[in-house]
Design a protein around this nucleic acid. Sequence first.
DNA 1: TCCGGAACTC
DNA 2: GAGTTCCGGA
Length: 602
Amino acid sequence: MELNTLSPLLPPSGFAFPDWAYKPESSPGSRQIQLWHFILELLRKEEYHDVIAWQGDYGEFVIKDPDEVARLWGARKCKPQMNYDKLSRALRYYYNKRILHKTKGKRFTYKFNFNKLVLVNYPFIDMGTGTVPPPVPTGGSHFRFPPSTPSDILSSSEELRSPGMFSSVARRMARGSVSDCSDGTSTNSELEEAVGAEERGVGPDRGFRGLLPPRLPHDSLFRVYVHQDPMSPFPVSPLPGPGGLLAPTLSPALSMTPTPHLAYTPSPSMSSPMLGSHFSFNPEDMKHYLQAHTQSVYNYHLSPRAFLHYPNIVIPQPHRPSLEKSAAHHLHGPPLPLLHPLSQQQGGGEEGQQQHPSPFKFKLQPPPLGRKQRDSGSSLAASSSSSSSQSSPFIGSAHLKQRRVEPISDIESEEEVEVTDISEEEELNHIDDDEGDIFTRTAPHGNRIRLSAPPQTSPEEDPDDDEEVFKTPATPIGSSGLAFPLLALKSEPGQASPISPGGTRCIPLKLRFKRRWSEDQKMEADGERDEAEDKKVRADGEEVVEGKREEVGRRGGEMENGGGRGGGVILGLMLPPPPTQRRASSELQRATAQLSLENTGC
DNA sequence: TCCGGAACTC
DNA sequence: GAGTTCCGGA
């Protein structure tokens, strides 16, 4: 993996893209080159720099000769009637996908949103992870922060050359067929030839162009490499970080969490604090930066995998006593690897044994290490491994019933391990819990019902994104009319095999409840706010946020008063609320379930 | 110049 | 699904 090799073909203001970004055939889901691929192709070719070129901000490019670009595009697609009007329509089509957006006030100037661009085309990188969808409008809802491994924190050029820049899986998935439209005038062959030549010449290890965004020095002393998830096809984030430098946009939290240290906008664009005028690469700034990021990780429930590793810099931890231990563990140098949950599971929960890399190419992640595991071992491993192996979409078992294991984060994992099982007939013989968040009960029909709390989804998450992530049981549980596990739990606590009490540390219920609510509300509010920004109706958005807050607060109040809106009927028994309401209700239910469990456990 | 809806093709 | 084509509107 060579992350910072500069290519002569790259624009001075170059950007780091993985190979696939330039490869016209690497557009899964499409048999033809996609426009954004083509744009990138043009952008990386010097001969087209008078036609289209990078400009200004990170990811921003200007079409200097719209007609020529349109002509090239038309030639590429065998559409001689192509013109800029049509081309721009296609570009506008990317707005909705958030692959691209217009730079306002600048003619023919657009800006890539690589974050979404990656995710749109590689949604599989999110599969099986279910990491808390970051409340970011730029596709962060898909992308997750890969955990680091020792080799992921790279600080030397040697280390940058670890093999497998893009796994064969990724490549296979990334490649489609190339449209054959060569009429001799097409730019197709030319561009692809160049691409192919580079591909052949450098090999699979070179996934990123060693490009640096504007205002980033090539020889930056400090490189913060994105943690790699062994599950991810990307050894490093495919996001166009500067030659593997951490692309701050990768952190949705960061991009949304203003800090006094960093000047950046919460825009869904590629706006980057790294590129901000206030940022430099001196250790002090990096410390601030990372601290801000760390805070953001906390603020947004992001996995500690999102923590940035920065050698030899100790990040002051946000004051959050319950997390300090693990945070320090992750952040203090020399950076200790954050381990993949799989490894954690296989290691039996012993941190000292977590170095084993996962042998699996694709496998749903079992829940991250929870307190219980840390304390008492690997009981969860058995259940999670069995469930995850069965539920892996890549395994394709007939057993698979839309169940996804959703490790949220280590923060969340202390309280939540998301396992949603909507299978009625599936037997779950061994389901242990992590602080009672996964538990089973025996329903009246004898099936074992796995109960779980819904994931923390962000309102910002694309509706189609979370659609499949969490589903309540398809049918009511048993004859008691229990429409929601919580009710079953509440009404039949004796039948449940709820919490394995051993090792469960009790946090004051009220405290947990409060904390959960405040965090949830913050997430929701932030998500709404960004959505509002995205829609460019800031003012209205704020109103919505406020409205939401009020609503949530109101519901929270009702909850705390021990009832729902159904005249004291426990939530879930009532008619299904509208989607947004349902989500909030789910939160309430989860919280309530948790409280119940904790009451039982404590 | 830009936007986005709608119908349409591949 | 990913544009393409057309078009009315800002």
